[in-house]
Design a protein around this nucleic acid. Sequence first.
DNA 1: TCCATAATTCGACAATTATCGAACTATGGA
DNA 2: TCCATAGTTCGATAATTGTCGAATTATGGA
Lengths: 128, 128
Amino acid sequence: MDAVSVIRALGALAQEHRLAAFRLLVQAGSEGLPAGALAEATGVPASSMSFHLAQLANAGLVTQRRVSRSIIYAADYAAMGGLMAYLTENCCAGEGCLSETACAPDTISERPGISQERPEIPQERNVS
Amino acid sequence: MDAVSVIRALGALAQEHRLAAFRLLVQAGSEGLPAGALAEATGVPASSMSFHLAQLANAGLVTQRRVSRSIIYAADYAAMGGLMAYLTENCCAGEGCLSETACAPDTISERPGISQERPEIPQERNVS
DNA sequence: TCCATAATTCGACAATTATCGAACTATGGA
DNA sequence: TCCATAGTTCGATAATTGTCGAATTATGGA
């Protein structure tokens, strides 16, 4: 996933109503939900929701298909996976940002190797 | 991490120059980099970079500390970890979006359980 | 064909975001 | 004290984003 796609995906999720809609779609699974249901569930007018869904679709995070009069949106897990992979590789210190709960449920919440207080530079002070 | 913080963090990363700066900071590690180095490395004017760094700081993704005349920025791995945790929990189907390479290097690139073609709904068709 | 439903597109507007030079603040050295 | 360096803040401006009612398109049933 290239940086441009990543920025588009991040921007698509960086909005209250779009994040809410996407979360609903993730919960809904591959069946998806019609646009109207998303508008109603989030309390957003239909035309506004349509605008937001177009952004999510443009970012590749959701797919859309028509079933009778409804247009069903569904989360694209592969795209989300690509985003997660990019962030893990480029924006985390190795795998440092991932919770290890999926792999090692006993090691939690304390990540060695990344010092929080940086004692090696004593003369520094925080900016107000 | 609450939804508001997540939206702020996503929005902070959803911009070309900020994503570039943050990636540099992640690479730089806990030592961090001064604002000027980030401006020079990205080719962004100092005042613009200052604006972007303020956004990253406001989102909690970077820390800043003064060392002599320089202000050193550093990636906040804990914040990034919080963001990743939120996305994993709320925007992925369980752990479905995470590559298993960190845990199981032999199982790659084909994730069972998430069908890409959804053959169970045959009468659908894509929206043009 | 006619009507109701589901959704998108249009248009106008407000709000936010991005850009960048100029002015300003803080720090440290001569 | 005076000057140079490192950054931020200010101000003006352009561009993008978000909102929502009204108009439009697509579909299916009577």
